[in-house]
Design a protein around this nucleic acid. Structure first.
Lengths: 340, 340
DNA sequence: TTGAAAGCGCTAACAC
DNA sequence: GTGTTAGCGCTTTCAA
């Protein structure tokens, strides 16, 4: 079996030092590019390193500094077109600063989220960006206490840095649009994953604005689903079809729900928007290419990722003054065929 | 004893050892759960560790073993619905084995890809999974020589392990379907990113089958785009509209191209599939919810990620016998409205 | 400008 | 069962 015992055959500073006829520490200095090494010595060292195909050991360096140039990102769902662009722009921002990104997919499971936080900490990452699964933030607070940068994304966090979209305004935009188009019988496709402040705020802003116009949503017209996939939207369409009285318009909490919903309804001969107008949320890249292009609320997700990374690296770099940064980006209504 | 020299205020094995009245190595053994520690001692140690909120330092452990429980994944595009599910299933597979995943987004840029390989190696990851940007694989071969597991995904690699879909068969399925529906005037939306074996094989299988039925594609009906976004598909629609003579059917190399293409054509009053039938490729989650649901070739991308991870962990675990594993998954034609 | 010594936190190897 | 010793590869501190 693998004899792997301890025979590290990797090239180390000592090897280069021997070849260049200097001490290891001098090699270290030369490789890091400080000005403390004579030009000729440096050149000799660089040449030796190249010949030996030296690969620096970042673990050793990390052990000394008790930190690596790595950040962790914990995301609800990697393959979700809403979250994926965030990850992408964070990765871009990290690469620019020569940081690597470790990922964790929580699936909105708090236990898994905590597990990732713990593992990241064990690897001495410099900071993390999290889309939290629940309201409980104690593990994040604890991590931050220990000196690691922590930024919450796509949710609010009273006691720490966060970057999110103002979902309350988004919900309001939806309500406003529906009312302006004369709708009074209005339904809602809600999602159990709404524990997060994100969905909660959408609903809150939506209800509040409707209420201000004395429009109320009867409980029968609030359709509940546990998941947030296209299929869940299709199931909601079945639930909708089973209603005895139907609303004239409905607000789906996410575009994916709206897509499944519209798709299934169309296949059942329901006309959109004539029979039922539909508004989604998120403006994912495919919302405009839905069978019936979706009216929706656009969130600049990559901008969110960018900003989250910016805030995090400010923290890591130590350039940020104390005090928490609360950033809320304004969403924007995009009007398309599903509710013109 | 514990000198606490540097500013590292982290709890170490030594602290726990002092508190439990044992040597650090005993703590190490107890925490790792071997059977070499007396029950009472272990309990004392575990209690002490918990009280002190001990966080193991994986960098130190990694330094000793010259390797961490981490794998790297280099992906062309994180926010691409084709690649994202692969990453997700790899992450799931890794988590199952208590491995962490580091990511790199290459953007089909070879230099960036190489940079990530290098950085991953510096961090002493156990293995990597790559969707290569180009045909050049020397850096991957070198990494594997150094004892790191390497698996190529979504491309072929003659000299190493790979998991991909059999795109040649996929291209053939498209051709077959078009011919069986009586199409003879056939066009192609190609993509410059087709340097990879993936696109190349699709085209090859497609052409070969058509040729066997003596159907040839005139150069004017091969529309070229540099990118692979929905917008690129829209541009291709403009190019299509500019044609003096038009084909009756067209094969778009990816669903995203097909989506943009169909969307723009519909908005210009072209009927699909009556005026032009369209077939895509990939069966991304939204293909079925396109304005005109897409006929396409389904690739099981998450299965690909799963298998890639499986092959990689076999390598890492040392259970794999020598010899390369070449896995090609069979794609499947999915018939929908865009080319019934 | 260069080097020697010490140690980051942990674990393999070998005592006892 | 438990401890001692040594050292993974690197960098910091202090000295020359």
């Amino acid at each position: 079996m693998i004899a792997m015992s301890r025979k590290t055959n990797a090239v180390t500073l000592a090897h280069i030092a021997a070849r260049a006829g200097v001490a290891p520490i001098t090699v270290s200095r030369a490789l890091r590019g400080g000005t403390l090494v004579a030009k000729t010595t440096r050149e000799r060292i660089l040449a030796a390193a190249a010949e030996l195909c030296y690969v620096p050991n970042l673990l050793a360096r990390g052990l000394i500094h008790n930190r690596t140039s790595t950040i962790g990102v914990i995301i609800i769902e990697l393959a979700n077109p809403f979250f994926a662009p965030m990850l992408s722009s964070i990765e871009t921002a990290a690469a620019k600063r020569d940081f690597l990104v470790m990922i964790g997919e929580s699936g909105r499971n708090e236990e898994r989220e905590r597990k990732y936080v713990e593992r990241f900490q064990q690897l001495r990452i410099a900071g993390i960006i999290v889309t939290p699964s629940t309201k409980r933030m104690d593990h994040l607070a604890a991590l931050r206490e220990s000196g690691t940068g922590v930024v919450v994304m796509s949710r609010r966090w009273a006691d720490g840095d966060y970057v999110t979209s103002d979902h309350s305004v988004g919900g309001q935009l939806v309500a406003q649009h529906l009312l302006s188009r004369g709708h009074r019988r209005i339904g809602l496709i809600s999602c159990e994953a709404s524990m997060g402040s994100s969905f909660f705020d959408r609903i809150k802003g939506f209800h509040r604005f409707l209420a201000s116009a004395t429009v109320l949503i009867p409980p029968a017209w609030v359709l509940h689903t546990s998941g947030n996939r296209i299929e869940d939207g299709e199931n909601m369409a079945d639930a909708f079809l089973a209603l005895r009285k139907r609303p004239s318009a409905i607000f789906a909490l996410t575009d994916r729900l709206a897509m499944g919903f519209t798709h299934r309804l169309l296949s059942r001969g329901i006309r959109i928007p004539e029979d039922i107008a539909v508004i989604g949320y998120d403006d994912i890249p495919f919302a405009s290419h839905n069978q019936i292009p979706l009216t929706t609320v656009k969130i600049s997700v990559q901008r969110m990722g960018e900003l989250a990374a910016e805030v995090l690296f400010d923290r890591i770099g130590g350039t940020r003054e104390p005090g928490n940064r609360h950033i809320r980006l304004s969403p924007e209504l995009v009007i398309r065929a599903s509710c013109p």
